[in-house]
Nucleic acid binder design. Structure first.
Length: 347
DNA sequence: AAAACGTGGAG
DNA sequence: TCTCCAAGTTT
């Protein structure tokens, strides 16, 4: 318990001020806001989340409002944040809470865990922060802090269970929500991945990793696979009357699922040949090739997208969006391609 | 159980 | 320019 007390004392003086957070010791924020922020924060730094959180809470102040929203609007507002399955699950979860739970989030780890998009970490975080349950919320920060504190040398992900047990053993009965956030703040600001600032750490005297000079090298991780290259092409078709851009909705599942994009052949190790290109063109052309290509790095592969553009009469049955709207609703990879098409057309 | 799934900031 | 990787979940 000594660890938790030190950490909470540090948190009382050093807690980051964040829009989804209550000050140390204050009553917790609404579960809806805790949940929304936790989903957005998955694999995403706080600074990136802030404007999205503000926008979502303005548009949809509670779970009923979000449940009643059009899914397309939710995805559009999420555009740019990445991991779009989160947005699809967010909407599904809002509907489940509104329709099956009377608009109230479950207040237990098990109940939360059953909702779409809520895994072990997020269930723990909501249970602790919104409902005061004495449970650990083990994210990347906590794995780092705990593996250093206990000098756990087994590599991730094998060490996950051991780390989770050690984390749970640290959770205090009082202020478990503040404790969870304190662990994350410590990991984000002091117990940093590369250069831990042990001199400023409230737990340094209790830290076995620091004592043994191991802190900066923990947690150990299995080496990651190399990133393959993929090539593709997209067609930017501008409707001649008004310059609106032809867009398609990407397949429901998979990469950028449900988001809008520019049409084009499937991405492959090699650039598409002429026949493949011709078969994928959404309108007659003639197509001009932009000088620049769009380059985008995804989690598990790198992509180079050639950009072909043309202006002409509307293709029958196609959807056209004003370019500003297309840009706003598109995921980043597609935004890059659209910008290149716009620049080429302006020349 | 390993792989799929985004993006941008830091060093 | 390049590597690392951040408040993970799903299949």
């Amino acid at each position: 318990m000594r660890e938790a007390e030190r950490l909470l004392a540090w948190y009382d003086a050093n807690a980051r001020v964040l829009p989804w957070r209550a000050p140390p010791g204050a009553p917790p924020p609404e579960p809806y806001r805790v949940w929304l922020s936790e989903i957005m924060l998955q694999q995403t730094v706080a600074a990136t989340v802030k404007p999205y959180f503000r926008r979502f809470t303005e548009l949809w102040p509670d779970v009923h409002a979000l449940a009643a929203a059009e899914r397309e609007d939710v995805l559009r507002q999420w555009a740019g944040l990445g991991y779009y399955a989160r947005a699809r699950n967010l909407h599904a979860c809002a509907k489940a809470v509104a329709e099956e739970h009377g608009g109230r989030f479950p207040d237990t780890v098990e109940g939360l865990r059953a909702l779409p998009g809520i895994g072990a970490y997020t269930a723990g975080a909501i249970a602790a922060i919104a409902f005061g349950r004495p449970v650990a919320a083990v994210d990347g920060n906590v794995e780092r802090v705990v593996s250093r504190l206990r000098a756990i040398e087994a590599p991730l992900p094998a060490a996950k269970a051991e780390i989770a047990r050690a984390a749970q053993a640290m959770v205090p009965e009082a202020r478990p929500g503040d404790f969870a956030q304190a662990m994350m703040d410590l990991g984000a600001t002091i117990c940093a991945p590369k250069a831990p600032r042990c001199l400023l750490c409230p737990l340094s005297g209790l830290c076995e990793g620091s004592a043994r000079g191991l802190a900066a090298s923990l947690p150990r991780k299995a080496p990651k696979a190399a990133k393959p290259e993929r090539r593709g092409a997209v067609f930017a078709h501008f409707r001649e009357e008004d310059g609106a851009l032809l867009v398609v909705t990407r397949p429901e599942k998979g990469l950028l699922g449900g988001m809008i994009g520019l049409p084009g052949p499937e991405w492959a190790p090699n650039p598409p040949d002429e026949a493949t290109l011709a078969a994928a063109a959404p309108a007659p052309g003639p197509w001009r090739r932009a000088e620049a290509s769009a380059r985008h790095i995804f989690t598990h592969f790198s992509l180079t997208l050639d950009v072909l553009w043309a202006a002409g009469p509307a293709a029958p049955g196609a959807r056209y969006l004003p370019t500003a709207e297309a840009l706003a609703a598109a995921p980043t990879a597609m935004r890059k391609a659209i910008r290149i098409a716009l620049a080429a057309k302006a020349d």
